[in-house]
Simulated assay, not measured.
Amino acid sequence: MRVLAAMSGGVDSAVAAARAAEAGHDVTGVHLALSKNPQTYRSGARGCCTLEDSRDARRAADIIGIPFYVWDMSERFHNDVVEDFLSEYSEGRTPNPCLRCNEKIKFEAVLDRAMALGFDAVVTGHYAQLTDGILRRAVDPGKDQSYVLAVLTRQQLAHSMFPLGDTPKEEVREEAERRGLAVARKPDSHDICFIADGDTRGFLNRKLGEKPGEFIDATTGEAVGEHRGSHQFTIGQRHGLGLGRPAADGKPRYVLSITPVDNTVTVGPKEALQVDTIHTKTPVWLDGQARTAAFDCEVQLRAHGEVYPAHVTPTDTGLTARLAKPAYGVAAGQALVVYQPQDPDDVVIASGTITATESPALVEAATNAN
């Protein structure tokens, strides 16, 4: 097959490209330039978005012996990822920019262009298994990326390759060393690539501006402090609140909800963060079987987060998941990913964007108040 290898400049994508070439595919490497001015994004050799990364990707392609190109995706990245990130925070939601980048850039814009150029598939260094169009967890649970790939459609998965899903990360690094790839011990990328200094709050303030508002105590309804913009916070946040008045019981307060309309941030005890029901919109069915009846499964609410047994009910607009045990600090804008436990590796069934949650603690408090 003619295969386009997306090469970020890190070890994973380099080894994935090398494996595809070794398997006999006609491989072409491509690095995605995500900023007109790379210095405005994160600096340092971390595996994505920088000038160093572009050079590392080119050197890896030379060693593998494949053609290499740089594609300018900066405008699409800015519109679909950066602007989406800002818009979501301004609406009181907490987005996952890496998930959005996979959806809109790596497996929509890139795949569309690759198919138009006559390629059969796109290969990446993601840790997930793909067999006969079915997405499964990677064998390395610590590196599994099936959660951030669960936004892909079956059509996109049909033209995708993930060669690393069956290999632990340390073995990938050892293989890179044997292949003579200079990125073998390059650190993984963890930060948001378009926030150069890692200061998310400062980035949001610069882009969205400061807008003073109040913290409201969920228990008393009283204002207990002031902030400089509700977009600075996310559900479950404890540190950096700067509250002027301590809670009556002396316990720490957490962000429970964000209301951009009046720019208020409601805070309260940790127990009030409990969530037992989650609602989503726009479900994507990855196994080709859109359900209409309720079913038992497992759900994951964050990348590398805890897995919860759940009873999921399809609705007219999305999915409703009732958890067997409460989760804490679930934010709208994140993804709920549905798994069917199977031996040896879980199968990804569906995903949906979280729109609302229900808290048993808040329901009980309201009942007692009445």
Rank of each mutant, 00 (worst) to 15 (best):
C48K: 10
G29R: 04
A361Q: 00
R76Q: 09
E306L: 06
P187C: 00
G10F: 01
Y328A: 00
S160P: 03
M161E: 08
P314K: 08
G221V: 09
V183D: 09
K169D: 12
L362A: 04
R55G: 03
P309K: 08
E108G: 12
D197N: 10
S35W: 13
H239P: 00
E306Q: 14
V110M: 14
G65N: 07
V312S: 06
G118Y: 08
K251E: 15
V338A: 10
E91C: 02
R2I: 13
D140G: 05
D72Q: 03
R179Q: 09
Y127G: 03
I64A: 09
L323S: 01
D217G: 12
F119S: 03
Q145C: 05
T317F: 11
G318N: 05
T315A: 10
T40H: 14
R136Q: 12
Q156C: 02
S230K: 06
T282D: 03
G202R: 15
V11T: 13
T282G: 01
R42D: 02
P326V: 12
V151E: 13
E103H: 13
V330L: 00
L149I: 04
L86N: 10
A138W: 00
G125L: 01
G221N: 11
E174M: 09
V348Q: 08
K36M: 01
N102S: 15
E91L: 15
G213Q: 03
I235Q: 04
A272W: 08
A45G: 14
L241N: 10
L336S: 14
L4G: 06
T282C: 01
K36H: 11
R113P: 01
T367A: 02
V312I: 11
R253C: 00
F119T: 13
R238W: 00
Y328N: 04
P168H: 15
S189K: 02
L204Y: 02
L99Q: 12
H239A: 13
A33G: 00
F194E: 02
I235K: 11
A361H: 01
E364N: 09
H25K: 07
C193K: 10
E170A: 02
M115R: 14
A303H: 14
G47Y: 00
E88Y: 11
I235N: 01
I63K: 10
R154W: 13
E222W: 02
A21F: 10
G352K: 02
G125N: 07
V299S: 12
P38V: 14
H25S: 05
L164A: 05
N102H: 13
R137F: 06
P97I: 05
G209R: 13
G221F: 05
T266N: 02
Y147E: 03
Q156S: 15
A218S: 11
Q342L: 13
V81E: 01
S189A: 03
E75V: 07
A116R: 06
R19I: 09
E358P: 12
L152M: 15
R136H: 07
S257L: 06
I278K: 13
F215P: 03
N37F: 12
H311V: 11
R154C: 05
I354K: 05
E103L: 14
A332T: 02
P341A: 02
G9S: 10
Y339M: 03
L135G: 04
Y147W: 15
P67S: 08
Y69R: 05
